[in-house]
Nucleic acid binder design. Sequence first.
DNA 1: GCACTAATGCGACTCGAGTTGCAATACCGG
DNA 2: CCGGTATTGCAACTCGAGTCGCATTAGTGC
Lengths: 210, 210
Amino acid sequence: MCAEQQPGQVRPGGRTARNREAVCRATLLELAERGYAALTVENVAERAGVHKTTVYRRWGGVHGLVVDSLQFAIDDDWQPDLSGTVEENLLDHARVALDAFLDAEIGPTHTAVVAAAFQSTEAIEAVHAFFADRFGRAASIITTAIENGELPPETDSIAVIRAVMAPIYFRLFISREGVSDGDLQQAVQAAVASARAGVFSSFDQDGERS
Amino acid sequence: MCAEQQPGQVRPGGRTARNREAVCRATLLELAERGYAALTVENVAERAGVHKTTVYRRWGGVHGLVVDSLQFAIDDDWQPDLSGTVEENLLDHARVALDAFLDAEIGPTHTAVVAAAFQSTEAIEAVHAFFADRFGRAASIITTAIENGELPPETDSIAVIRAVMAPIYFRLFISREGVSDGDLQQAVQAAVASARAGVFSSFDQDGERS
DNA sequence: GCACTAATGCGACTCGAGTTGCAATACCGG
DNA sequence: CCGGTATTGCAACTCGAGTCGCATTAGTGC
């Protein structure tokens, strides 16, 4: 979706790559300084030293900018810390994830993609893929805990991760209640308690998706 | 925020009320048919048989339209069903809430306010107030359960409600995973299990909000 | 009813997002 | 180094969101 060059030859050469980097960096800065509501193609183009037509042609508009900037900025080789108890590792993960959204540089971009998902199909896919990726990696916290006997076997590891993260994002972006560190601790304790009670044990998942 | 008439006299007379109703209905229909991304003041104004200047003056723009339309459309005397067990009542509540967001008529408006909250302070306050109100009412499910001995005393009733709803909204609007009825059941079971484990028992809530 | 004024209608205007056709530039393979 | 083509720059254009001043209409209090 970033660029749709179906013509015979693609040209990922120096200038193209330089422009992408310049535009993505400009988008990140614009988002950090002015926010998603004020993000405009022209400002980004000018800041990146690129003509706005180029941005429209390669990214299609603000949605594409936001999506590509996220993929440009995220840390691809992140792994959760597995050195403590389940509770400690989950709390650590929750804090890191929350910080990523509150961070002055990259936070606005994360938020912007979530916001863009309300208006753009590409953004929906990007957000979905982002969470699938992060949840998949964080799942090792749970599988390790299962191996250590901290949680019952057959526990759906991704379900536990989601149970930890859902209240945090809900407070942040839906109910707009704000998130304290105590909320993180409560989310972790609730998820672990539910897992120990067998709620997340893999059972036949009936009921079709809507 | 709907109208800012600080001049000496307000005039909530017949025409004003009629126009508000027409505009709000038009907004609901536009949202249902075209969605939030395509919502425009001009379309709403034309549909309502009102000049666009009037809409801009009284509502300020699309954000105001969305916010006021929600307040126009929500059912003010809703009360949760308390006839079953905690699990049954919570599951019933979760289904009703989910239906409200998936409903063809009012659902798009709920979604639109959540989306608008990413761009407008008024929308943030509206969403915040909406959830505070709904959570407050649904809390009677928990207080009743405490009286019946189904849950430990000292349980923070709103925390339980939020624990039920958070995963649902998270899947709907953040991770974009879709929601099945099995997910609702799991959310209810997790919240109840956590409450029974004492996770939501009112304790000194340290950690400041961010 | 009648005066007074809030609320609305109306048209013209500004301004910025997004598009298009064409010229200039820079990468790529030889 | 050189020709071919993808990519970009450029300028002019369209189109719709939002604003402003003024005329008109319709509540409100008497």
